[in-house]
Design a protein around this nucleic acid. Sequence first.
DNA 1: ACTTTCAATATGTTTGAACATATGAATAAT
DNA 2: ATTATTCATATGTTCAAACATATTGAAAGT
Lengths: 250, 250
Amino acid sequence: MFEHMNNIPLLDHDSKIPLHQQAEDQLRKLISENHFRVGDAFPKETDLAKRWGISRNTLRQAISNLVRDGLLERKKRSGTTVSKKKITTDLANWLSFSHEMEDKGIPFKDLKHTVNVVKADKETEERLGIPHGAKVVSLERIRSTGRNPMVYFRSYFHPRVGLTGSENFKKPLYELLDEEFHVVPVYSQEEIRAIAATEKIAAWLKITPGAPVLERKRLVLDAGRKPIEFNICYYRSDAFTYSIEIKRPV
Amino acid sequence: MFEHMNNIPLLDHDSKIPLHQQAEDQLRKLISENHFRVGDAFPKETDLAKRWGISRNTLRQAISNLVRDGLLERKKRSGTTVSKKKITTDLANWLSFSHEMEDKGIPFKDLKHTVNVVKADKETEERLGIPHGAKVVSLERIRSTGRNPMVYFRSYFHPRVGLTGSENFKKPLYELLDEEFHVVPVYSQEEIRAIAATEKIAAWLKITPGAPVLERKRLVLDAGRKPIEFNICYYRSDAFTYSIEIKRPV
DNA sequence: ACTTTCAATATGTTTGAACATATGAATAAT
DNA sequence: ATTATTCATATGTTCAAACATATTGAAAGT
């Protein structure tokens, strides 16, 4: 808990990162590190704005995002407080296939593991928001749990991340991104469909064309909602069920 | 599509409802009514602000919310565009098909709507944790968005909830449960698979047997993790993408 | 035909200012 | 003691203005 404003870290007014963004990041950090007790009073807007040398409006931009994400609550006269309710998706391992499998005690191995630098296709360009013709690092995997292929994975990484293609992808992907590149995934936008296996997919998964396959497209974003990775994968339907638990933000 | 700004409804400057709120509501409505084509250019901020007699800043407040909700996308010089319609499981409406569809402005109707009191099958008994042979209220629905069936739904409710089968299921289900029975869903455990349509499913959805179908099984729990409802549904794969956004617990 | 350069333009950031509004707390009236 | 009133205050709304920045598309150069 901060006794005084003066203990709250400052912002970098010379950075290219917008002030409201810095403020948001800073607050996220402070909250997640429990510098503010739940339900406790938050610094008031005017004070915080003064401390950071930004206008109340700019600070408000940051706070609004946190309110929308359910980390903070605002009430007119009482001020801003830290919410109890965490929008939890329960998944500590929410993004990691290997963690998931390890948790369930299912051994797996990679039947294919390829890293390339390629020109992004149109969909990838759109999702990642990169210019036409831009090159991206692609990671392609076919993973099996047992004798048969279970899933085909393909990821394209936003150039911003800074991958070169020569990294060690043996360790869990999101550990690598965090530790080596200081890129932390926060949001995952997932689209899940059932499709009939194309020839290509059938070959990858060793199934018959036309068989139902679970397709998952996933756009992984950082705290500022900037794209990190666009990922598409095909799961064998007879071997895989996609399970999640959603908790309502009460 | 609006040829001219002049066709866009005005705001009520005398209302007690904030202008940014009115603007947001108005835009939501316009988008949901398909007055703007997907991917098409949106009126630019300056023009819209002028049309509505509000400042660009105020309008921006409204648009920002829509962007955050994924209805709009902004790009620097190119302007604002309407996003591809994602049937997103919004955190607010996380469980309601009707809310989801209404929010996206997709009209739908029930092709079938049956309420029964039946003996639970084995899977339902297990999931709900009720004794063998117990009776449960079942709700069966086939819903369409447009001409063709979109999804087949079947729900079994835990006897604890207290449904008799004679309730008015026309209103959104989770409103009913909350208001009439004081049952509030908090957790949703979901299992998603791709399967080949059986004869029965094919008949419901008017597709050919063997076609890929998205199956979702969902166990809805209350705050104490006691089961409320076991729900199974089959989505036409050519018409439906299951979209969720997961946010990492920071 | 191809690339480079450059200006126009739509969104992005930030500020300071003013007034509205809900509400907790102090004060006054009962 | 209880209720009503008032006031101070923190958030809520809105504005106008200025400058930053990315990107499109056209013009110019190769």
